[in-house]
Amino acid sequence: MKLQQLSLFLENRPGRLEAPLAAIAAEGINILTLSLADTAQFGILRLIVRDWEKAKRILEQAGWVVNLTEVVAVDVLDRPGGLAGALRILEDANLNVEYMYAFSLRRDDKAILIFRFEDPDRAIQVLLDQGLHVVDGDELMTFVS
């Protein structure tokens, strides 16, 4: 039920984002979604890609430090209150979100929320118990292809 997310360390200066993205693009790897967190001095690029093992290998061989993290994807209706409803469930269960990002799908009127939890297994149980739809890697790929 969990997705593998790749994280890269980047210095916060012009041109640093393009290089890793070009490296994986050259190998035909498409990005499903990404987020960028930054401070004044550095940033972290987080990527969800289909063939994460290949992408990780390419990036590491090119010299980047790559971290692999398990994240949880949930789909909600792409309308006002869709995200808030999911967050309320997590809050009621006292589950802390380390960070999250979201993207909407081009069909089905759905949005996908990507969550980073300290304890993803417990979070998945809570989400399922509350009737939310947790999207696994294979299913996510069918949504976006």
């Binding site: 997310q5 994280s7 360390f9 401070t39 550095f42 430090v65 790559v66 971290n67 993290t69």
Partner: peptide, 15 residues
């Protein structure tokens, strides 16, 4: 230089 041993996906971890 950031090493795999200390790199974290969280800003807080790096700070």
């Amino acid at each position: 230089e950031v090493t795999p041993e200390v790199f974290s996906d969280k800003i807080r971890g790096l700070e």
